[in-house]
Write a protein that binds this DNA or RNA. Sequence first.
RNA 1: GCCUCCGUAGCUCAGCUGGAUAGAGCAGCGGCCUUCUAAUCCGCUGGUCACAGGUUCGAAUCCUGUCGGGGGCGCCA
Length: 555
Amino acid sequence: MTPEALAALIAEVVAALTGSGALSLPDGLTPNVNVERPRVKEHGDYATNIAMQLAKPAGTNPRALAELIKGQLEQNAGIAKVDVAGPGFLNITVASAAQGQVAADIVAAGAQYGSNETLKGMKINVEFVSANPTGPLHLGGTRWAAVGDALARVLQFSGAEVTREYYFNDHGAQIDRFAKSLLASARGEAVPEDGYGGQYIHDIAAAVTAQHPDAKDLPTDEAIEAYREAGVTMMFGEIKADLNAFGVDFDVYFHENSLHESGAVDRAIERLTSMGNTFEKDGALWLATEKYGDDKDRVIVRSDGTPAYISGDLAYYLDKRERGFDLCFILLGADHHGYIGRMMAMCEAFGDKPHENLEILIGQMVNLLRDGTPLRMSKRAGTVVSMDDLVDAIGVDAARYALTRYTNDTNIDIDLDQWAKASNDNPVFYVQYAHARTCRMMANAADLGMAIPTDFDPSLLSHERDGELLRALAEFPGVVASAAELREPHRIARYLEASASVFNKWYDTRECRMLPQGDEPVTAANLARLMLVAATRITFHNGLGLLGVTAPERM
RNA sequence: GCCUCCGUAGCUCAGCUGGAUAGAGCAGCGGCCUUCUAAUCCGCUGGUCACAGGUUCGAAUCCUGUCGGGGGCGCCA
């Protein structure tokens, strides 16, 4: 029995009690049954505070109500014992057969175990990374590559139709500085003011020069244009290749420029104007965002007639909505948190619902530590701390895991020495090793001719450690659902670490050996444990998959 | 000045939208390998949940303020 199933059962009991008149609740009150795992063993397998929640509205006292629910609940065959404790907690012990059945249910669900359909029918756009191609992907982009992709996977596992999207600009001032820097390098000149330095500039400049030997001797304007075009193509190619190697592939690469060329920007501005949300002042066109909660109004067309950067954002958002996305995520670094106000105001100005049609997630900064000291970035000097630096140091799996195991709103310091270790201070190895161990066990079982039993007897998984492992596995769907709902993929990682620990304890328990020892015959209990191991393997495999981390079968 | 994130064990961090005696890993100390992968497992040590108020049966969690640290506040992109 999963916690969700137990919660549903309790809800039925409450409904039955109100139906029979034994309990009266105010109209429209639907109890929100909260089932949790108690910290202390003596408090049973699961506990609920439902009686404390409902006592006041029902006009009774918590313990009396708890007794009432207990009486009904104990009628169910899946429930072994119910205790009323403390101020009115219901401590529930699940019958071992009902508990053990979870293993078979997981094996039956297979690759789908843990999924849910809470977002079924939702079309969701997740925009992340979106770095302009002026240099290699830096750490902030890398954090979002890992977390954004994991979030997309979690949303998909919850039934949503998800599009991963990358928005980039191949024109504009940043790109001009990039192009000028390339040309300066090709001509052997110093890095221009506000330009980009670093080895990658020289590498790309040299590559462009090799492709177009005459380009650097063109008149400067034409030469810049030539280096811009070829340089952007190369840089963007590298970024895409890096992301691909990182296991992240986008469905859509969206060019900001296309919005200007297609007239989408003008249409967006017209739409906002017709809704009375723009005005002219000081020769510029403004979007009235302040009335929708922004700090101040924003210029969208400058007094010289050129569109401001935000005009692209307006058109881009409108474009996404017109492509049918119900919900648009934008994943940004902490240095962009100031955008939330204007973007939400923009959303409302279009007549949409902020935080419902548009969600902006902010990820805090990432630092790499080597020997305890942070690696610092400097654009001028070209000391970019990039995705490559991270991946080269610790590998893709550890990098993705290290970036997804923390909440978005905390700064991360990644200690390269720690994450490069193949040891227990490295959580990714701990989880992967547990998975590999299940695979080895199953291979060993197959060698002995053992197969997943068709006449599985769930009551044989009656050891205390069996129950602990089963309860851990049963938690997975709830963890996925909350990761999706709260947009917090790190919950998956933390769950896997805790569950790997429970599995290892089970593995270490002599009474729970899965394989027959020595000349012992294969018993029904051995086969029941094989089912449990199979369920564990599936759960770890699916969980690692949601993080985009590989699940090796052997380590 | 304003906005925003963070402050929990020596270190790095969880804490399931308010529950029972605040957890994990690492570090430190001490144990378990003839039997499924010891990258495992067991025990011990370690806390003013930054501080002060408030909300209530109950607060690390919600609200207000203070202190400390990170990041931001362009007709840049």
